[in-house]
Design a protein around this nucleic acid. Structure first.
Lengths: 352, 352
DNA sequence: CTTGTTTGCACAATCGATGGTGCAAAGACT
DNA sequence: AGTCTTTGCACCATCGATTGTGCAAACAAG
């Protein structure tokens, strides 16, 4: 093994080896050499040396000097959720295709944590920040703003910079209508048989609930307040709500609108403790898509949010010079029961 | 707003404001000030200024000087998979608790991509790298080794550094046995009725298959080679395998061992095109856990790998000075049908 | 052969933090 | 008062890359 090992080559090493100055080496290797009128032969020599010595630039040094890092951040509530992890997957692909490095971090839906996490990312001089599903997007905005960091909201809107979000009102309407229409005309759903569980007081939940209530009134004529059960996002709280309902009525509602797949897990936990027959006449609509959920023993109608569309839009908007803080709505898609959609994973090569 | 805005405060700013030298400011703010015999009052003053001016250290500068970045990397095959995303979630919590910054990146199971991704992370001077589910762990090892970067394998073993992996042989045995025993004694499974689908020629698949075959021979006395269908990880390949089987036999096997939840999605795709009755007598064992899958209309026995245990072990091992390249096996857990387990998400606060 | 222009590159400052070294002032001791 | 310690901090080189500027050599024009 040559002296290559253990210590990475720097432009100074290559400078000695090539007989050129460090600045020349730098220029050659970062592509600005034409502008600096470096001879093609000199450039070729240096590129060659770089190759054989496996030179790669020290990004910390580059970042320090240029105050750019090549890092683009994505702030998520959590990783282990199908929706957000597909956000991460899609985001990563986009960032990589721009030749930059994605850095995905979660902040547990905690406003304080969100801000601190953003601060940390900023201390690494990230170039842009995508704020996804943040509980307090404007709080994060503050810390970005003071250092002039480009940022954008996804999934939950803020008021200071553009937001790309799912059309939750429309999605809520679609899903509610689909649930109602799923019941045969001779056994129609009564208003007090259609409940909504999960979500809390965030923009997405509010919009979905608004859509739910509007459609319910339009199609069923009525919408008792008690049918809305915003239990938060924790699966166990949702479970408790189902348990409570069951205690009181001896059964579940025939129609259930569940605010997210995480809440849906609350229903699963309920199911684990109750026999099959409780679910014979149940139709669920879930505002999230999960292929396994789609094949449960009762009809599950789902909403798939257009993650690819949102990320694409977000990149478009963030590239604009001075984007207005408007909200860009991306339409979600209704998924009928027993449907196995393809996802980003299908793009992977797998030569078995 | 004070002059604080737009540009981050540096130790030089604080140095001017406090009347001390930059090195003093640096020492105070990075905790080495006692060693440098800085007066408590001086330190207090500087801390105060730092506070009011919202100073945070520029990590690129610090990293450049100290050749450490505070970043710890996790290399994943993909994000949008329950197993790997819970890896990410758990990993992140551990790293944060050490006061460092997690950086999670996926490399699509592509050896070339894995190496390039590692190179990129290295160029940011990450301090440690956790290589999870890599197709070619030893390839990644090479690039880590040349720069002296601490690293460890998770989920799929390498031969050069320690590996923390699931006990796939044992898990394969458990799952196979559970499938067989799930059939009533009066309608026992025949050897040619128990198939394995999915996976490819990686260590995990091989071990699971070894466990599968061993138990099959022990309990059913025989194990025709045709019962092993390593279709790779792509859902669609698995689907095609199911379709092919169905074409040939007019039904599915009664017992199916599926190598991963991703492959399981292949079965879902098959199901979407076939009526319910094809699954009346089906029992599935899946080497992965997904709560929704656990409640499908046919019995689904699952294996949950101990992600928390693996990550914890990995951190322990990587802290050791010169760890031997041995393999640490972590036992997975058998999950009976219709079971909704809790996960990392349950730790989140959610005050609805 | 002189003057002007272009080519090709070297020099040196800079980004922000770190840490070894040196040195004045304050205190201890004789 | 003189010497020795200790205290408290400033100075400066350094990490590796970027970039504005300067300048000699090569070449062109007159």
């Amino acid at each position: 093994m040559t002296k290559t090992s253990k210590k990475k080559a720097t432009i100074y090493d290559l400078s000695v080896l090539s007989g050129s100055s460090p600045s020349t080496v730098s220029a050659v290797l970062n592509g600005t050499w034409q502008k600096r009128r470096i001879k093609e032969s000199t450039a070729a020599l240096i590129r060659d040396l770089a190759e054989t010595h496996q030179y790669t630039a020290n990004r910390q040094a580059r970042g320090l000097r240029s105050s750019r890092s090549g890092l683009i951040g994505l702030l998520l509530p959590v990783h282990d959720n199908r929706y957000f992890s597909s956000m991460a997957q899609t985001f990563e692909a986009h960032v990589r295709s721009k030749g930059q490095c994605p850095i995905v971090v979660s902040a547990s839906r905690d406003p304080e944590e969100e801000r601190k996490t953003a601060e940390t990312l900023i201390s690494y001089s990230i170039d842009e920040l995508f704020i996804c599903g943040a509980t307090d997007p404007d709080g994060v905005h503050e810390v970005c703003e003071t250092v002039g960091l480009k940022h954008i909201n996804i999934d939950l809107p803020g008021t200071k910079v553009p937001s790309v979000i799912s059309d939750n009102y429309q999605g809520g309407r679609m899903l509610t209508e689909a649930i109602i229409r799923h019941f045969p005309a001779d056994q129609p759903l009564r208003p007090d048989e259609l409940y909504l569980f999960g979500g809390r007081d965030d923009h997405a939940s509010r919009e979905r609930i608004r859509g739910f209530r509007a459609v319910k009134r339009e199609l069923l004529g009525e919408d008792p307040d008690g049918c809305i059960q915003p239990t938060g996002y924790a699966p166990n709280n949702a479970r408790l709500a189902f348990e409570a309902f069951y205690e009181k009525h001896g059964k579940l509602p025939r129609g259930v609108f569940i605010n997210s797949s995480i809440n849906f897990e609350g229903l699963l936990r309920f199911m684990a403790g109750h026999p099959h027959e409780n679910f014979a006449d149940l139709t669920v609509g879930c505002y999230d898509y999960d292929p396994f959920a789609s094949f449960l023993p009762f009809p599950v109608i789902m909403i798939r949010q257009d993650v690819e569309g949102m990320i694409t839009k977000a990149f478009e908007v963030i590239e604009e010079g001075r984007p207005q803080p408007r909200i860009h709505l991306i339409s979600p898609e209704l998924v009928q029961p027993r449907t196995a959609l393809t996802g980003p994973l299908d793009a992977l090569k797998d030569i078995g």
